Simulated assay, not measured.
Amino acid sequence: MVVMFTRPVDVYSSLEMLSVGSNLCDHILTDESLDKLSKYKRLNCVWSSKVQLVIYLQKPMEENIFELSLRKGIFKEDSSNIALVNDEPIKIVMRKLTTEWWVYTPRLVITGPSEVPRCGLFSLSGHYSSPKGTTGVAFKWTVTRDNLPSTSTEEPINEELTHIVSSTTSQNLILDAILFQPGVNSTTMHQ
């Protein structure tokens, strides 16, 4: 959760402004807000600047709209000759960011060497671009040999290579060049 202030603010006690974590959350959030946020487990409040307060939740936010209240008497305008302290709780309506406005289709780009090296390890990385990010995305890798006639008598793809590739679900695939047949330039990797 990100709270943006229209003007630079300071916490009434400058010592608290330097605090980080749940004790800062306890100091600035009302008891009602702390109770509502308790279902997200551990809270961590951080001042990223004089105009931005970030509240980290351990679990993703469920609600699309969330009302948050900051305690009264805690905040004052920063660098002001006559600094006014908030005499009422500050109520904030937070809206969950959605990605419904994003129109492009998710894309995957694989980076790595264009040729299998003669020896040693090499890696392929899948760079996934989606409005929803890579959370919950399992990568499925396969290896095939292109342009190989079905009647070919060439050796099949190494079983160990097939097993390593098929059991990898992360976006990074690390392979040993020894698993590939030397001199074959039509082997491709794809998602």
Rank of each mutant, 00 (worst) to 15 (best):
Q52M: 07
L53Y: 03
L53H: 04
V54C: 13
I55P: 00
K59M: 15
E63C: 10
F66A: 02
S69Y: 02
S69Q: 11
R71P: 01
K72S: 11
I74S: 00
F75S: 02
F75M: 08
F75I: 09
K76R: 11
D78R: 11
S80K: 12
S80I: 02
I82Y: 14
I82D: 10
A83Y: 08
V85Y: 11
D87Y: 10
M94S: 01
R95F: 12
T98L: 12
T99S: 13
T99N: 13
E100P: 01
V103S: 13
T105V: 15
P106Q: 08
R107K: 11
L108I: 11
T111W: 03
V116R: 00
V116S: 01
V116N: 00
V116A: 01
F122C: 05
S123T: 02
L124S: 03
H127K: 15
T134V: 13
G136A: 15
V137R: 02
F139P: 02
K140W: 06
T142S: 15
V143P: 00
V143W: 00
T144C: 15
N147T: 11
L148T: 06
S150R: 10
S150N: 09
E160N: 08
T162P: 04
S166T: 09
Q171M: 07
Q171S: 13
Q171W: 03
N172I: 07
Q181M: 10
